[in-house]
Design a binder for these strands. Sequence first.
DNA 1: CCTGATATACCCATTGAGTGAGTATATCAG
DNA 2: CTGATATACTCACTCAATGGGTATATCAGG
Lengths: 183, 183
Amino acid sequence: MGISGNLSPEFALLGFLVSGQSHGYDLHQRFTIELGHVWHLSQSQAYAILKRLEQRGDISAHVVEQEKLPARQMLKITAQGRRRFFEWLELGVGANARSIRLEFLTRLYFSQLHRPENIPQIYQSQLDEIEERIESLENLIEHLPPEQTFNRLSLDLRLQQMRLIQNWMAEIRTQFHISKDIG
Amino acid sequence: MGISGNLSPEFALLGFLVSGQSHGYDLHQRFTIELGHVWHLSQSQAYAILKRLEQRGDISAHVVEQEKLPARQMLKITAQGRRRFFEWLELGVGANARSIRLEFLTRLYFSQLHRPENIPQIYQSQLDEIEERIESLENLIEHLPPEQTFNRLSLDLRLQQMRLIQNWMAEIRTQFHISKDIG
DNA sequence: CCTGATATACCCATTGAGTGAGTATATCAG
DNA sequence: CTGATATACTCACTCAATGGGTATATCAGG
């Protein structure tokens, strides 16, 4: 889990349900419109995740018959689901490029929706993780035997990507009006 | 498949077998030493992949009893496996950051081992893909409705990552002495 | 001599990711 | 009346990945 657990399309669906009950089709639609360039989530994948969430007790479902269209599974978030969602919202996402683009942005999206006052804190802890990661990569590269060409190229790219993300985070600071003196 | 099929730890194992027969434990060791900072492949994952490769007929296995240690499965690449491997070696890997760091580097590694003369061609087609991707991202961003904050942030980051990779590719050009006038 | 770390060598169960296709019905434009 | 599009969901399958478990052998330290 944690670092690359790739769990957040799950939490994103949960996050939409925090605003009120809904059903699979609609959740997938909203996801696609709002975060479709962040992740790609297929319809069947969305249904699979929702089923899992139900099995875990994070959401509850009840069938709603419709006059003309097929019946819907109306989905509600449970107390447990709500708790799990807000716990997730405050976790760090780790510091690899992919999970920052995917998970951190998703977290930011739902923080803005449900907990805007927490944004500075979430922002800062993410930035801290990135800076730690940069140091640890610099260290790794320094101690890598010189003949390890391909491992070095890989680590170099990762390091450069982390530095890029550091700058991109500065853009986010501006866009979300986060002041500098937090943490 | 193709773009993000995530298939190359498979081909990497196959690629080690091009140099001669071996067994699971050793292949996993070599993988970890040579490409351990490119991918992380757990031992059990390695065995799972090798089993799949055998089922497909890309490798063949026969048991070798050992005097003291447990028996080994000696693995040999088949004609089919060899063909599949060299086909893969010439394919493009697509243009997302992750698959370039993982798949492209792996391909480069095995090209150097088994087909050094093909490096310029592989390099160039990868670079072309990256440049196409940059254009297509620029286009997407341009036509994105301004209210789509999070989708925009995601696309922005991807674009910047692609530009970074473009520069990183230039470093590779130098390191591998690839001349500029190819393709 | 015994113990514990390390290396060799492999397997299995489970969870999850992800695709592709199928099943229905309703609406609306041409 | 036909075909595209939208609503709404299900199923079967493959692959990814982790975390454990199972053995045996070697070798160093107490």
